[in-house]
Simulated scan of single mutants.
Amino acid sequence: MDIALFSPSSLFSGGDGEEDHVYTGEENTDIQETHVERRHQFPGTELIIREFSFHQLNANLLWPGTFAFAEWLVQHKSWIGGRRIIELGSGTGALAIFLQKSFHLDITTSDYDDIEIEENIAHNCRVNKIPVIPHVRRTWGDNFPNSSPDWDLIIASDILLYVKQYANLIQTISFLLKCYKPSNGTSSCLPNENGVDVALPKPAFLMSWRRRIGKEDESLFFNGCEGAGLEVQHMGSRVYCIKPRGNGKSET
């Protein structure tokens, strides 16, 4: 895996025409010199999140897509209720902690195979007074421990920074979607509160992307998904739904 060695503050340069999230509250840098603790405002709640002041695998600050995606998910909460969820590229675990704390969802975090990232997510769970969320340490492209995953919703925000990792990311997404085995034989669509099926199938991958990159790089990812037999749909607000195309055979 290519390792990016740069200051996480560069992620919030504001040069892409979008407003960057501004945290509120006090900053505590006395926990450890390798960490910084901040208070972040999520919809309807405030979370205390310990972030890496520097980490060579880039599980650093919260990125803008986290907050935009949290707001979008609140607006579409009927789509995620009752789902079994895994988040790719969880970083600090803030989005998963928000979803578990607000909606008591069945959610699992995952990120690069690194014990410090896992331990930091566990710390953030405890400081926000929720049970430690299950975590999967798996680098994109590596095999998951379960050959028949039963997560029916995969989520992620701002994970398209590393162009060289697109092939591995698409391989992981394809595996989770195409090898999905429902544990209870549920239907492919989730009914909303009015009993009408919505467009979010089981399984599906929901991704928010707020950090601007070149159109060529975006196309590399989305075209790569299409080439892997996946269908990409823009849901609005730079949220994308990726799902298996048709009823193709599962890949191993």
Rank of each mutant, 00 (worst) to 15 (best):
Q56R: 15
G65I: 00
T66D: 05
F67I: 06
A68P: 04
A70G: 03
A70W: 04
W72G: 03
L73I: 07
V74E: 08
V74T: 08
H76A: 00
H76T: 00
K77G: 03
S78Y: 09
S78K: 08
G82F: 01
E87M: 07
E87Q: 05
G89D: 02
S90I: 08
G93D: 08
A94D: 03
A94V: 03
A94M: 03
A94G: 05
L95P: 04
L95F: 01
A96P: 04
I97T: 15
I97F: 11
F98T: 05
F98H: 06
L99F: 06
L99D: 05
L99P: 08
D106Y: 11
I107C: 08
T108S: 14
T109L: 14
S110L: 04
Y112D: 10
Y112N: 13
E116Q: 14
I117L: 04
I117E: 11
E118D: 07
E119H: 14
I121H: 12
N124T: 06
N124H: 00
K129V: 12
I130L: 02
P131I: 14
P131V: 10
I133R: 01
P134A: 14
P134M: 12
T139H: 14
T139K: 12
W140R: 02
G141I: 10
N143M: 09
F144I: 11
F144H: 08
F144Y: 13
F144L: 11
P145L: 11
P145Y: 14
S147C: 11
S148C: 14
P149H: 13
P149T: 10
D150R: 09
D150V: 05
L153K: 01
I154Y: 04
I155R: 03
A156N: 00
S157M: 01
I159N: 04
L160N: 00
L160S: 04
Y162N: 01
V163F: 07
V163C: 05
K164V: 15
K164W: 11
Q165E: 14
Y166H: 15
A167M: 02
A167Q: 12
L169V: 05
T172A: 08
L177G: 10
K178A: 07
K178E: 06
C179Q: 13
Y180L: 12
P182Y: 14
N184G: 07
T186Q: 06
S187T: 13
S187G: 12
S188F: 13
C189N: 06
G195I: 09
